[in-house]
Computed example of a mutant assay.
Amino acid sequence: MSQPSFDPSASLSLTSRMSTSPDPGDGLILASDLGNAFGVDFRLRRESSRGRLQRVSRGLYYPSARWDQLRDDERYLIRVRGAALTRRGQAVLCHQSAAVLWGLPMLVGWPNEVHLLVERASGGRSDPGVRCHALGVDARDVTTTDGLLVTTIERTVVDLAATLDLKSAVALVDRALYQDRFGRTPTLTTKDALLATLERMLPFRGSRRARAIIQFATHLSGSPAESASRVNIALSGFPEPELQHPFIVDGKECETDFYWREIDSAGECDGKVKYFNPEYLAGRSPEQVQYDEKQREDGIRRQVHGFGRWPASVGMSQFSLRRRLLELGLRPGPQRVLRGLERPSS
Rank of each mutant, 00 (worst) to 15 (best):
D7G: 00
S9G: 13
S9A: 13
S9R: 15
M18K: 00
T20G: 12
D23I: 01
I29Y: 03
N36L: 05
F38A: 15
F38I: 09
F38V: 12
V40R: 15
R43N: 10
R43T: 05
G51N: 05
R55P: 12
R58M: 01
R58S: 06
L60W: 00
Y61W: 01
Y62N: 09
P63M: 10
S64M: 11
R71I: 09
L77S: 13
I78V: 15
A84H: 12
L85Q: 07
Q96F: 00
W102D: 05
G103H: 08
G103P: 11
G103I: 10
W110L: 13
H115W: 03
L116D: 12
L117W: 10
V118T: 15
S122H: 14
S126D: 08
R131L: 13
H133I: 01
D138F: 10
T144E: 06
T144Y: 03
L148Q: 04
I153V: 15
L160G: 07
A161E: 02
A161T: 04
A162E: 05
V170R: 11
A171F: 11
V173A: 08
D174A: 08
D174R: 04
D174Y: 13
R175F: 06
R175Q: 14
L177T: 05
R184K: 14
R184C: 05
A196N: 11
E199N: 14
R200Q: 14
R208V: 15
H219R: 09
G222D: 15
S223F: 00
E226S: 02
S227L: 01
A228K: 03
S229W: 00
R230E: 01
R230Y: 00
R230L: 07
N232A: 02
I233E: 06
I233G: 02
S236G: 08
G237E: 01
K252W: 04
E253I: 10
E255I: 10
D257F: 06
F258L: 07
R261D: 14
R261P: 00
R261S: 14
S265T: 14
S265A: 15
K272L: 09
V273L: 12
K274Q: 06
Y275S: 04
P278T: 05
P286A: 07
Q288M: 08
V289H: 03
Y291E: 11
D292R: 11
E293K: 03
Q295H: 09
R296D: 00
E297I: 02
D298V: 02
D298T: 06
G299R: 04
H305W: 06
W310F: 13
P311C: 07
G315Y: 07
Q318S: 09
S320G: 04
L321M: 07
L325I: 05
E327F: 06
E327V: 07
R339C: 04
R339F: 04
L341N: 10
